[in-house]
Design a protein around this nucleic acid. Structure first.
Lengths: 218, 218
DNA sequence: TAGATTGTTAATCGATTAACAATC
DNA sequence: TAGATTGTTAATCGATTAACAATC
């Protein structure tokens, strides 16, 4: 019974999975909700609820078997199949993400980058970079669900719309704009629902400065 | 009456501020809770509550005056003074963040980078990069509250401990580890509370893939 | 069995939403 | 005044926490 997992739950599942793989590497066979909770910083009750929700069954005495748990979560996250994304905006941050080694662990691959500037175009790297003109053509040919947006803020809205129009249904947004899925025609033939995850680095940092300053006295 | 603002509230305040500055640039003088809410994707009631919490007063008829509101939020966020951070781990992602242009808008500056690899050391760039050996020395000399952590996962725990030991009280963590403030001696002389903001890019992307796959049919 | 852990229900907590009197 | 918006209270919602019976 899934499909109803919210973002927080999915976040935790990804984290459980990382821990479980480490435990497996160490030769562990079983794990208690208690340990798993400690490892990712939540209570045991949350772990048990999460696992119950994905229909993982534990043993009242021996905890959860690691192997089937890894299996279950991996499949749920789609990690048994390779997952492809494109990236638009190959500046400093964008090109750093283009061959970010951390994606491999989740079986995720950025298959192409796009940039407006002719000098950024480069077919010889590990990930090819195309002119942004070719975006629609590429997406039509490759059926890729997710886009990473690392363009300057002033280009964000336009590129976002183009991504959605080209069939992208999930966007990881690094611009400081709060993107909304199509403010335009909602009821139109293209009832496109696009999920957006906003990662605003400046905002997180500003938040951190506030917190440390505020609690500096304590 | 502040000091009790939680993370979500601070996040929203940063966003309000960005919108307010744009409105000011357009020549606006006043704004309604309604507009502000639309702009950042929350309801008007949330905006009014947030603003009441920071003791910003609005006019029952004319909404909120933009100038004093900018003033108030800016001071609250400490943006009237320049805020400095250091960065450890000058790999692809790290060096992209070293001179990330988006920090300037929040009056934040990364004053130094540190790296283990001798070839990364570089004093001629816009931000100097020192050997990681010099970390404690530098922090002792400069009294910087916040650190950005972009080292490989296997170095994360060690560097984090060193940062905290050297007086860092806020860490923006880009590794996939869930860092906790000192699992060690809590009651010791160094009752150091360190705030951590975790940004796990791979995790967000994995989450996005889950969402799009789950709602693909709908 | 005795001890320990799961699975689940009830209680708590906090944040969001709705509603509306006060008032410009 | 009439209309509209704030400031605030009450209601709702969801997620977290506590508790405990079931059971290995």
């Amino acid at each position: 019974m899934d499909g109803a997992l919210n973002r927080n739950t999915v976040h935790r599942l990804v984290r459980y999975l990382r821990v479980l793989e480490q435990l497996k590497a160490l030769g562990f066979l079983k794990v208690f909700s208690n340990n798993l909770g400690d490892a990712i910083g939540v209570t045991a009750a949350v772990v048990r609820k999460d696992l119950a929700q994905i229909e993982a069954v534990g043993n009242k005495r021996g905890g959860y078997n690691i192997d089937p748990l890894i299996e279950r979560i991996s499949r749920l996250l789609g990690r048994d199949k390779r997952q492809y994304a494109v990236l638009v905006g190959c500046g400093r941050l964008g090109s750093a993400l283009l061959d970010y080694p951390g994606f491999e662990a989740d079986n995720i691959e950025v298959s192409a980058g796009f940039d407006l500037r002719p000098e950024a175009v480069n077919h010889s790297g590990s990930v090819p970079i195309y002119p942004v003109d070719k975006l629609e053509e590429y997406l039509e040919a490759h059926d890729i669900p997710v886009g990473i947006l690392t363009v300057p803020d002033n280009a964000a809205a336009e590129i976002f719309d183009r991504l959605v129009a080209a069939g992208i249904v999930g966007v990881l947004n690094f611009t400081s704009l709060q993107l909304k899925p199509r403010p335009g025609t909602e009821t139109d033939e293209s009832e496109r629902r696009c999920f957006v995850e906003n990662i605003s680095i400046g905002l997180e940092l500003a938040n951190l400065f506030y917190l440390v300053r505020m609690y500096a006295s304590m």
